[in-house]
Design a binder for these strands. Structure first.
Length: 303
DNA sequence: CATACGTGGCT
DNA sequence: TAGCCAAGTAT
């Protein structure tokens, strides 16, 4: 090794990672509907919205129904946003449904009804952040972008940095690693993005990684260090029981099931504490997830 | 940068 | 059982 190639992310080390991971992916990739050619860029985008913080198993049935009902962005854009919220079902974080509808409207207005391939244009769509823009550009259009999701961040934390878990929020250091490890060739970069993500999802999992099945266990910094346990502050803290989120969920569930606008009393029945209940309902209205009518009833947004 | 934002399965 | 965790985004 010369003095110019001593960083852990030089071209040689990167290639040593890419080749086995991509080969592993070739043999082990799941046959997911949004990976099939017929999914198209819209299918990729729909799946990315649904998969934000949500497991694949729960997304699958909703994705299939969604694509059958709204096969193109213009189809969704022509329907009421409340229908998107209803079809979202119990996936959670229903604002994603509203944003996906908003993205469909924006694509209809600004992009001729198609999913843009330009990263900046993707990023400008509602609900599309750093990760989703890169994912759609990479998976749907084969472009070269660092795709840093929770799976990839964990793979890098272990193989490159040598720690059990990545930081709570994505750091500049992680982006540097992702950028440095990105293959030069476009198609290979896109393959690498999908492969490294899949490795994190299936093998290098958060709780009990299957190092015996890992194609790069021999060069994994964390494993070579003896798998030291995570040190530092607790990783998360997603409270739920008794929170406004739980109340919002109950209120929205009533509205999703209803064919007609719902009277106040039906919403009051879902939670005993009136102050929190009112705050939750106000929040849903403010978020555009619920529409108050002049007669005092409520419904999912019609427009 | 911390926090709000759903839901359900698994250990 | 009480957390922990799941392809994040917006503020």
């Amino acid at each position: 090794m010369t003095a110019t190639s001593e960083t852990p992310t030089n071209a040689t080390a990167a290639t040593a990672l890419h080749t086995p991971v991509i080969a592993w992916f070739d043999a082990n990739a799941r046959d997911l509907p949004w990976r099939r050619p017929e999914a198209g860029a819209w299918g990729v985008m729909v799946s990315e919205f649904m998969l934000q913080q949500t497991p694949v198993s729960r997304v699958l049935p909703v994705y299939e129904q969604w694509m059958r009902r709204w096969p193109r962005p213009v189809d969704l854009a022509a329907d009421a946003p409340g229908e998107a919220v209803r079809a979202w079902g119990r996936l959670g974080y229903p604002r994603r449904a509203l944003r996906l509808h908003g993205a469909a409207v924006a694509m209809t207005d600004r992009h001729g009804g198609g999913v843009p391939s330009d990263h900046a244009q993707l990023l400008a769509l509602p609900g599309v952040g750093e990760y989703t823009a890169a994912a759609v550009a990479s998976f749907a259009y084969g472009q070269r972008h660092p795709v840093l999701d929770t799976n990839v961040r964990r793979v890098f934390a272990r193989t490159v940095t040598g720690v059990q878990y990545p930081p709570n929020a994505t750091t500049a250091a992680e982006r540097r690693i992702a950028r440095a490890l990105l293959p030069d060739e476009e198609a290979r970069a896109a393959r690498w993005a999908a492969a490294s993500m899949e490795l994190g999802a299936l093998v290098c999992t958060a709780k009990s990684p299957d190092c015996g099945a890992c194609p790069v266990s021999g060069q994994c910094a964390w494993r070579l260090a003896g798998k030291p346990a995570h040190d530092g502050p607790p990783r998360r803290g997603q409270t739920y029981a008794g929170t406004d989120r739980q109340v919002r969920g109950k209120l929205l569930a009533v509205l999703r099931e209803a064919d007609e606008p719902v009277p106040q009393a039906a919403l009051d029945a879902v939670w005993h504490e009136p102050v929190q209940r009112a705050r939750a309902l106000d929040g849903l209205v403010a978020d555009g997830l619920v529409e108050p009518l002049e007669d005092g009833r409520y419904r999912l947004p019609a427009a």
